[in-house]
Computed example of a mutant assay.
Amino acid sequence: MAATTLKTLGTRLINQSTGKGRVCLVTGSASKGMGRAFVLSLAKEGGLVEVSDIPKREKEGHEGTQILEKTSFPKCDGRKSIWVPLDVTKEEAWKAAVSDGVLDVLVNNAGIVTPHDATAVQSKQISLAELHKSTNAGMVGGVGTLGYGTSKWAHRGLTKYMAGTLPAAGIRARVSSVRFIRTEMIRGVGLVDQNSDDVIGEIGNALANMNYLKRSAGPEEVANLVVFFASDESSFSTGSEFLVDGRWQ
């Protein structure tokens, strides 16, 4: 592939020859945390975003699509987003989610992808990029949470094998490992204030002090990396691991 010319901000996910934006499916994106930040950032660059989550979160999912439709972001085929119900643990749900065969970018923000999921998606021709969101529990050992930590190590391995298995289909796989991001879950357990970005409590402050920057991060700080992965700016990157953790100690 020839060297890529950097595009103007706001058009990085738009095909200049067709004028169409890349179709981006973001799992677990009914939330107001990283999922919402991902869909907003992708849409801002011209992508047609498929907001997806488990069926019972349909109301929140539609809230996300309505927010996008009210923005001044570019439209793809006359729209900016659609709601796609998807339980990532069900193979049939994956097949239904990509049944029209049009998908350029898959952001695995929810759950853990299995080899079966990869096979189902590959058969529907994802054409460009796949991003797995993990945490740095898969980078270092720890105490407790054995299942959680083990799954994150597996996530890294899955990305490496997908990078080696899927290039013939034009698919690149990357994994982003994050830590202490201000999500609904983090706020809900009392580590970050509900109405501000302030870290609170003994445990919250201890976690903040475990990275070089001594703070938590906003979902948009991860979303910036997601847009980079989804664009041609990362066209020679696959099987790569990216840390968004303030250099966890």
Results as ranks from 00 to 15, higher is better:
L6M: 10
G239L: 01
V222P: 06
V107C: 15
T27H: 00
I200F: 02
A217I: 02
E58F: 05
I181A: 06
E130I: 15
C24N: 03
L40E: 10
I67C: 07
K133H: 06
S216W: 00
A223E: 01
K32Y: 11
T89V: 07
S99M: 00
N108G: 10
K90R: 08
L6H: 11
A173I: 00
C24A: 10
R187L: 15
V49R: 13
S231Y: 03
K56F: 08
G201N: 04
K59R: 13
S234P: 02
G147L: 06
G142R: 10
A93D: 14
L9I: 07
G147R: 00
C76T: 01
L13C: 11
A93I: 04
Y212K: 07
S216P: 00
S31D: 13
T165S: 09
E202T: 05
K160M: 09
E202C: 07
S123G: 07
A3V: 06
I67E: 12
R247S: 14
D87H: 11
K70H: 12
H155I: 02
A154Q: 08
D117F: 05
Q125S: 14
D232Y: 07
D198I: 06
V23K: 09
G218C: 14
T27C: 03
T165Y: 04
S72Q: 09
R57M: 14
G147D: 07
S81P: 13
A208V: 00
L131G: 12
D193Q: 02
G149Q: 04
H116W: 12
E221D: 03
E69V: 00
N205D: 09
S17I: 05
A163S: 09
S81Q: 05
N15Y: 03
G21Q: 09
V113W: 06
A3W: 08
H132N: 11
I181Y: 08
G21P: 14
L86W: 11
V227Q: 06
V143D: 10
W83S: 11
G142M: 04
L103D: 03
L86V: 12
W94V: 02
V192L: 05
D104C: 06
A129V: 04
Q66M: 11
S41R: 13
L243I: 14
W94M: 10
T135P: 02
A30G: 15
G138D: 06
M139G: 08
S72D: 15
E233R: 01
E202I: 00
E233A: 01
S216Y: 01
V143I: 14
D53V: 00
K59I: 15
Y148C: 04
I54L: 06
M139V: 12
E60F: 01
V102S: 13
R22G: 10
D104N: 12
L13Q: 08
G141Y: 00
S52F: 02
V222Q: 09
W83R: 12
A96D: 11
E69W: 00
G47D: 03
Y148N: 08
V192M: 11
M210R: 12
S17G: 04
P167Q: 05
F180D: 12
F73M: 02
Y212R: 07
I171Q: 15
E91H: 13
A169H: 05
S99C: 14
A206W: 02
S52C: 08
H132C: 06
S29F: 10
E130Y: 10
G64Q: 09
G142W: 09
Q16V: 08
R174S: 15
G61S: 04
V227W: 00
A129M: 01
V121P: 08
K160I: 13
E202V: 04
